[in-house]
Amino acid sequence: MKAAPEAQRRLLDLQAVDTALAQLAHRRKNLPELAEIAAVVREISALEDERVRAQVAVDDLDRDIARFEKDIDQVRQRKAKDQQRLDAGGSLREVEGLQHELATLNRRQSELEDSELELMEQRESAAAALADVQARISAAGERRAAAEQRRDESYTEITKEQEFKSASRGPLAADLPSDLVTLYDKIRTETGMGAALVYAGRCGACRIELYGADLNRVKSAPADEVVRCEECRRIMVRTAESGL
């Protein structure tokens, strides 16, 4: 393929734009905030599991405490009825029976209240654990929101740069021979880079030093000949800096 030396040199400008666009795309894909957000999402997921377990513990204790409250209330009602019957009087046997039952109910109430108190202390600890995990979820959510805001700000900045670079690429490519751009784009699509400067006798893409027959091939090629590296197949642009 033939192309004016100046057109070949301008391929380097096109490559510089494409390299910048590739770097911006890589930056967009690998923003540190993305890894941070992913880590926080995993953390929140684990914390949500912990919160569910903590909530279940509190709910179970609430259910047990409610059951004790019901049992205690029933004992109190039974005591009140027995006390009314005792106050109303009766035979000695009835009075003794009521007194014995009241003593039994008092012991039962005391046992139930002690058990309830123990459960209430457990609930206090369980509620504190639940509040702690909820606070950690809230803090993680704030970190996630902050990271997402920074991510979005970076996206906006990157998009502006991409739009600017893309806008400059169009006229630059349009001003070059179409067959040269087609070849360049084909190579760039396949390898990530379409053209590179030959500098100090080395291919600027793969950094391989030219020597022997390959060096002679490049040196002897007409200035308007589009030469390609034997190693990486990229277009090699020759200038005064090429050392040929």
Rank of each mutant, 00 (worst) to 15 (best):
V75F: 10
R78P: 00
S45A: 15
A221Y: 02
A135N: 07
G90S: 05
D71G: 04
A88Q: 05
E121I: 14
V58I: 06
R136T: 02
T159W: 08
C229F: 04
A127V: 08
K29M: 12
Q8I: 00
R85A: 12
L117A: 15
A173Y: 02
S178V: 02
R217P: 01
R151I: 01
A39P: 00
E241W: 09
N30A: 12
D73H: 12
R67S: 14
E163Q: 13
L197V: 05
T19D: 14
E231Y: 08
S168A: 13
I208T: 14
G201I: 03
M1Y: 10
R108D: 15
Q134D: 01
V198F: 06
A196E: 00
E118P: 04
L24A: 07
Q15K: 04
M120W: 08
L92I: 04
E101I: 02
I65A: 09
L98F: 02
I44C: 05
L176V: 02
P222K: 05
V41Q: 11
L172K: 02
G204C: 05
N216H: 12
I65P: 03
I37P: 02
F164Q: 15
S115A: 15
R9D: 05
M236S: 01
A145Y: 05
E241M: 13
E43N: 08
K81F: 11
I235M: 05
L31V: 06
D60M: 09
F164N: 15
K186H: 13
Y155G: 08
L117Y: 11
S115M: 12
Q122V: 05
Q55M: 10
V95P: 05
L210I: 06
R42C: 06
F164S: 14
E113L: 11
A25R: 06
R27D: 15
E157A: 15
G97Q: 03
L130K: 09
E33T: 07
T182I: 00
D62V: 10
S220M: 13
V133T: 04
R78S: 13
S115P: 04
E6T: 06
D71H: 07
A54C: 04
E48M: 10
E33F: 06
A38R: 04
E33N: 07
R151A: 13
A80R: 09
D214T: 06
L176F: 00
M193T: 14
Q84Y: 10
V58M: 00
Q23E: 15
E69K: 12
Y155R: 14
E116M: 15
A145D: 15
D214C: 01
A46I: 01
K219Q: 15
E124Q: 09
R27K: 12
E161Y: 09
S178G: 09
E96K: 08
C229E: 02
E124I: 06
Q83E: 12
V17F: 01
Q83G: 07
T156M: 10
L14F: 02
T156A: 15
R78M: 08
V75L: 08
V133F: 06
G97K: 03
N106R: 13
E116N: 11
A223E: 14
A126D: 07
T191G: 07
K81I: 02
K70T: 13
A139Y: 05
A25L: 03
I137S: 03
G89Y: 00
R228F: 06
E111V: 14
D73N: 11
V181M: 01
Y184K: 03
G194C: 00
Y199F: 12
P177G: 02
A147N: 09
D214F: 04
